[in-house]
Design a protein around this nucleic acid. Sequence first.
DNA 1: GCGTAACCTGTTTTT
DNA 2: CAGGTTACGC
Length: 751
Amino acid sequence: MEYLESLNEPQREGVINTEGPCMIIAGAGSGKTRVLTFRIAHLMHSNGVDPFNIMALTFTNKAAKEMKERIEKVVGSDARNLWMGTFHSVFLRILRREADLLGYPSSFSVYDTDDSKTLLRQIIKELQLDDKVYKPNVVFNRISGAKNKLISWQEYVNNPQIRADDELAMRPRMGELYKTYSDRCFKASAMDFDDLLFNTNVLFRDHPEVLHKYQHRFRYILVDEYQDTNYSQYLITKKLAAVHQNICVVGDDAQSIYAFRGADIRNILNFEKDYPDLKVIRLEQNYRSTKVIVNAANSVIANNKAQLKKEVWTANDEGELIELLRANSDNEEARLVATSIFEQKLNHQIKNNEIAVLYRTNSQSRAIEEALRRSNIKYKIIGGLSFYQRKEIKDLLSYLRFVINQNDEQALRRIINLPKRGIGQGTIDKIVVAADQHQVSLWDVVSNVMRYLNGRITNTVDQFATMIKSFMAVVKKKDAYEAASYIAKHSGLLRELYEDKTIEGLNRYENVQELLNAIKEFVDNKEIEDKSLDTFLQEVALITSVDEDTDDDEEKVTLMTIHMAKGLEFKVVYLVGMEEDLFPSQMMLTSREDLEEERRLFYVAITRAKQKLFLSYANTRYRFGHLKSCEPSRFLDEVDPSCIKVNKKVSQPVEMPRQTSHYAKSLVSGMKKESKPAQNNMYTHKPSPDFAPSDTSNLKEGMRVEHPKFGFGKVVAMDVGGASRKAKVMFDNFGEKTLLLSFAKLKIHST
DNA sequence: GCGTAACCTGTTTTT
DNA sequence: CAGGTTACGC
């Protein structure tokens, strides 16, 4: 096998140890994808395994596609028969096939996060609950969290611990919301993202014969990015692998950054317990980055307690030192980055597409964009609002969805008055009431409106129903493209957009055309047999922004969040906004685990760089409309100082905020970092490990409170200016701070 | 039912 | 500050 020649020893082990459970701990840049690719190729090529018997789960559809292409290069077109994709897409496929066992039609809809939250907003309103207490976001996260831990609504309402938690959080009716939400989704023949995994578990639990079928079919199971799987995903793979035990997980605990989405790092930390004869392989040699970058990353991650033992090293050159750019404002930071990029291109012949600017939050992209535009540097932004989340796209998709699945309530509500046809909130309410009274679906009422309602609007509603019925007929006869363009034209959506001559309207029109083009491409694809609209919708449900094709032929600097950068690499990386409260994010500072996840995020950012890393921070930044002073991030202190060079080119003296971190102080005084951290700074206050923020609705002047970062303090004033609820607190060590109460996490200690 | 204007509120990451 | 929501007048 000539491909084995190009691998180092542990990599080869990872490729040829195909039988039995196997865990590959792959440090950043250690050639993980290569090993995975070759492992699959080896299975097929040398061991003669039918690709039909292999399931490979990846983190994004894009990763799956790329890996498939790479495997194809080694073993040929056989690779197409591999089951490869994200957990969501692979099990969506299985669920469609087995849907009737769960009481769903196989054409069920998939609700995205938007649909879910809209539905929750409706339910909260219907139950007459206060949406300030039951914030759709909070409720959604709570339900999502439960589902990811495989807690059904029945178990949820019957669990005294959970009930106590909800009551403590002043949200006693959460279980009811969970139940209603589940009911409504089921009635709408819809599953949300979490349901796809949850219901797969239900399917395997309640239908042993189905589980059995897939257990025997998938003799080899591979899971990439295992550190980012949640309990639900963990159990699916465990069950599927139970018979053959040929499970191979690949991951890096140091790069687990999705706990907020339910990822459980313990899945990888405890993997050994499930499979006592587990073969553990460590890929510790980094082929990607310079020594400086590897050392810096190691020095940072060493601060985390929860991690698997591993030592990443590299035989690469020492490389250039990391540069620290200091700016007085976010705009100046952006200018410094732009200037530096210009210099890199000029002096080191670096191309645009070898450069990335990474940030913690999407909102930080603005300043950078502006500066790059002014410097005539081409750039592209990855992430943010995805194509499939745009209003006009969701509008047309809702039409298509509804024509396929008339139970889809969210889709119906979206399109019934779009474009405006005089069916307003009042009419919709009447329809809902009628449907409820007669115990029929909304579509039953709409399609037989004369039977259930009377009055002026029945005519309009009836016209709408007739239109939908005609669409349903078209879909039966035509392929996806013809059906979709017919619907786009005859629904009036295209006309409305066409008549909008503003630049935005033009854009939207083009976007819809683009969607139609995508459908055309789907129809023209020779590999797909079934060209119905139905099939297209199934494919499209799980497409996300990462998967979208970006015009790579053009040379552009890449701008994205650190999360999006996982799995990518660039010669030169700029990590901007290295400020306390921003990175680590102030929302993540309540527990040690949270801080460790932020630190892993920092680790991911550093290790994206192959040759050169720039870190930057600003002393002031616009945050929610106001200019705020910022302090350098504590993370800067954690980077091995011998890896950093402070950029001397900053002309203006750096104005320091009142509370400066140790690192900032050492910069001012020109001291080396060996000196002790200053007393009374943020490191000295450690919130108790069980720091649970109190409910602050009764917060009053004079109360003594604890803040996870600023420590203890006393409330000196309430409701200071502005519309939002704010409190002014005098902290023992940090002076006076004004905190936004909806946002700040405070623990009340005494009155 | 619809459009406008005043008003409110919030800030993380995304399959 | 900006985007979303509500209230009100037509």
